[in-house]
Amino acid sequence: MAEGAPASKKPAIIRVKLEWCKGCEICVTFCPKNVLEMEGGKVKVARVEDCTKCMLCELRCPDFAITVE
């Protein structure tokens, strides 16, 4: 996707690199739409349909483990 393109209405795709996720829960706690959950000490995408692509999880993930597109 081109940089700076306006947010499209396409549903979000959230990818988690489980082998890099250290389970700090920052993304889960600060997601304004409660999209994410913890499962087995790692993040799980539970309600992707609620995602507004605000990108806060991606921006605050210290481990480069979660991306939203």
């Binding site: 250290k22 389970g23 700090c24 829960e25 920052i26 921006l59 605050r60 993930c61 210290p62 481990d63 480069f64």
Partner: peptide, 11 residues
């Protein structure tokens, strides 16, 4: 460590 902000700064 898990939750360390240093990775956030790097990004």
């Amino acid at each position: 460590c898990s939750g360390c902000g240093d990775g956030i700064v790097l990004k």
